[in-house]
Design a protein around this nucleic acid. Structure first.
Lengths: 205, 205
DNA sequence: ACAGCCATGTAACTTGTTACATGATTTT
DNA sequence: AAAATCATGTAACAAGTTACATGGCTGT
């Protein structure tokens, strides 16, 4: 839901045509997220379908402009005046992965953490040097790009910190004797004849 | 791409039927992410389509089991032994939003930041008290749930720190005179008669 | 002439997500 | 008997993403 809103926010500045929107988005986000041009036209179609934009007059060059509607303007304004609410909450693949991993008997969680930490540390370093080159922003574009890089940097740093933190958590848990490997739950099915199930009496594969 | 992989990792422990997979996923992630049952069956269909699982024998109760295939097992193993690579990189709605916001002339970025900070701080506090209740995990499930909560907590804290950080960035930029409001780019279109475009000579809407 | 960018699209596809239908079984 | 839960699905849709087709125009 962010490309949609971004295009809407840009269109709120004035009518644009598709190709232009791509460069506007690129320019305003430091070209951080490559955006396939085709996606612009898809999104425009969907925005038009939802009544948030409409086709406007062409210019002398024949470009096909889209203009924001009142509803679209309201939505853009709403987006910018309300907080990004992490509903759900954020389905972070890494968190899911590690939660699943600690519940699996045959997974070396410490190794998973190490592998990830190495990778994430690499990301941190890349982002750090990237940021250093973007040191002093001279334009609003540069500023925007810097913010994006630092956003990723902060997130990557938090990831590393978390990974290091959960290493101690795992140690604590192991010390407390919470290391029982966890097979599939053996809760008795309620339908039909109850059947105690473990990994060892599971139906043949 | 995380539900898919999670189900695969669970199925790697032994055959399961759809409904069971839901409770396994819930159990192993602290019921953090509500998972519509229908989605299990969708995902199973797609996994089967991709040759990663296949239908297995039913048990006495008539449950429809799915068993992982060799390809599926390889994929599950690959998932757990390689780092989550944030390709793209992560398209964070908040980062996009603020990047766009600073490039728009009529947006009070400070207010956007304040609103978000308030919201994110609230999230931090909720997660903190949630974590405190999950203090000492007694089971592997509890441990997994704790990891998930702390993952979100670390992320939310990083978000707050970033928001506070970019406040100073904005101040620096303002001091350096980089506050020029940014209209739509006026790069001359290459097709047809070049037309200088600004917000004020855009085609009528 | 030819390569490459500008520009607009279309079709197909991915994962995720919800709403709904249907029936069996279990609990109250 | 009614309500809740177990269990399996289907249909539709959202947003994102890619690959491709098709021209016109531009620079070499």
């Amino acid at each position: 839901m962010s490309i949609r809103q971004s295009l809407l926010a840009i269109l709120n500045q004035g009518p644009c045509y598709g190709y232009q929107l791509r460069s506007e988005f690129d320019r305003r986000t430091g070209s951080t997220w490559p955006l396939n041009v085709g996606q612009i036209y898809n999104t425009l179609d969907r925005l038009e379908r939802d009544g948030l934009v409409e086709k406007a007059d062409s210019d002398q060059a024949g470009h096909i402009y889209y203009a924001i509607t009142a509803a679209g303007s309201a939505e853009a304004h709403g987006w910018l005046s309300s907080a990004v609410v992490r509903v759900g909450p954020a389905r972070d693949e890494l968190a899911i992965k590690l939660a699943i991993a600690v519940t699996l008997p045959d997974v070396d969680v410490a190794a998973v953490i190490q592998t990830q930490r190495k990778s994430s540390l690499g990301t941190v370093q890349e982002l750090t040097s990237l940021r250093d080159t973007s040191a002093k922003p001279a334009s609003t574009e540069d500023l925007a790009a810097l913010l994006v890089i630092e956003s990723q940097l902060f997130a990557a740093e938090a990831e590393v910190r978390w990974l290091e933190h959960i290493k101690t958590r795992l140690a604590q848990a192991a010390e407390a004797g919470v290391r029982a490997p966890m097979p599939l739950s053996t809760k008795t099915p309620k339908r039909g004849r109850p059947v105690k199930r473990t990994l060892h009496n599971a139906p043949t594969q």
